[in-house]
Design a protein around this nucleic acid. Structure first.
Lengths: 245, 245
DNA sequence: GCAAAAGTGTTGTCCTTACACCCATGC
DNA sequence: GCATGGGTGTAAGGACAACACTTTTGC
């Protein structure tokens, strides 16, 4: 129901006072939740904290916080990531907004899910409050609030995205072997891929730089290490159509 | 800043009163905006109203409203569509949430964009308040608020979606010719397609039902009319990989 | 009979897939 | 020397792109 203040000017029929208009809107609590994916031991991982809410005290929770007055939601998501983990300069993408009126037991809270992909070794956790640590995505079958639903949506989003854009590189170290890259795709997409065809596909994209270095500390023939050519990818983004397996 | 009420219980460190927790969150105004695409005269159209806000009185605006307390955002979007146009039972998809703190001159208002595709002839406008009518998407270069940005994002979303899912059928009459279908794809994707290859592709998908009827009132050889087999598509959705041109 | 668009097949090219052997290293 | 995974090539099949002529209708 609009308050009187926002009722249009009677002569023109137009609304003049924008501040009053916005004041007349009902207000809701708004949070961001960060789904931070990592990759280690050939498993897709997600960064979670122990919920500090009594009714969810045995459950794990995404990294979230309410949005401050002055920041965009994207800024809020970056802030949450920084405050909870100390990490900066990582990729963040808005995935979906969850608005089921019953999703939060304390009343109506809308949340916007942001997704991030990063390399676990390059981003050692400095802060581990609330038992912050990495979990295997596939081992989770219950979470606080509707966070499992949010995670599931982000996982589907990730599966689709890494086939359209080479986002997966963000999950790998700067230098990686083709075996690691293939493990990543196999783990996320939950498929087995032919090694030779996989190599052909990625070499034909021409976004891999041969570092000339080799793997170390492996007990078999070491593989070559590559870097991803982000610069070349950015230039050719327009022509880019995706990765079909 | 959390209010005292939401500070955790001091003995367990856990938050017990969820209502107080949510009360402690800052609240923001939240709206939904509907981007309703149609197709007519081989042009992609979008349904807009004249803004009733004084400073935007010469601009066009998406169909939006604030979200009510008790409804999910999706419900709000369906409500806006119903209230503004009288339309029901149309497809709606959440596309993106826009949260730039300066997007609304009256203060902070977050909006969630929903996208809908419908057939203009099957959905004659019963209500035309605020000069509601269809506009050519390509002719718009200025809109109220950040609505042009929202429209642009939804247009990109549509271009991608109709190549992955046969959503385009929602824009066509129940019975349509292959020429109409091709015009639709050419208009939305802004490309020219080979007629024979286009036919082959759609027939090979096997989602078209030959109605046995022909076009009428055309001054050339009439084309066959087809229906989209929504049922078969739903069954085979899992195997569906998309439409590559 | 002519204008306008519908309808139809083939061929070459490229991409995808399936598949097997030798090579380099650690132990 | 053997176990382990790295590295490579080829052939067949399927999808896509390019292309021209005949058919049907209205006028």
């Amino acid at each position: 129901m609009q308050k009187a203040a926002a009722i249009p000017n009677s002569s023109t029929g137009l609304i003049k006072d924008m501040d009053l208009l916005v004041e007349s809107y009902p207000k809701v609590a708004l949070t961001v939740d960060c789904v931070i994916f990592g990759f280690e031991d050939n498993k897709l991982k997600v960064l979670l904290i122990r919920s500090d809410i009594d009714m969810y005290k045995d459950e794990w929770s995404l990294l979230g916080d309410f949005a401050k007055e002055s920041e965009s939601l994207e800024e809020a998501a970056y802030r949450v990531l920084r405050q909870r983990t100390g990490m900066q300069n990582v990729y963040l993408d808005q995935v979906h907004t969850f608005s089921n009126p019953n999703r939060h037991p304390g009343g109506r809270v809308i949340t916007v899910a942001y997704c991030s992909l990063l390399n676990i070794r390059h981003h050692q956790l400095q802060i581990t409050d609330n038992e912050l640590h990495w979990h295997n995505v596939n081992d989770l079958d219950s979470m606080a609030f509707d966070h499992l639903e949010i995670l599931t949506k982000c996982y589907s989003w990730l599966q689709k995205r890494i086939q359209e854009h080479p986002l997966g590189f963000n999950l790998l170290p700067e230098k990686f072997s083709l075996r690691e890259l293939q493990n990543l795709y196999e783990a996320i997409l939950n498929v087995e891929l032919d090694r030779r065809n996989f190599r052909k596909k990625f070499f034909s994209m021409d976004f891999l730089i041969d570092t000339g270095e080799l793997e170390e500390d492996v007990k078999h023939r070491p593989g070559k290490l590559y870097q991803f050519n982000f610069e070349k990818y950015e230039k050719n983004k327009r022509k880019w159509v995706g990765i079909d397996f």
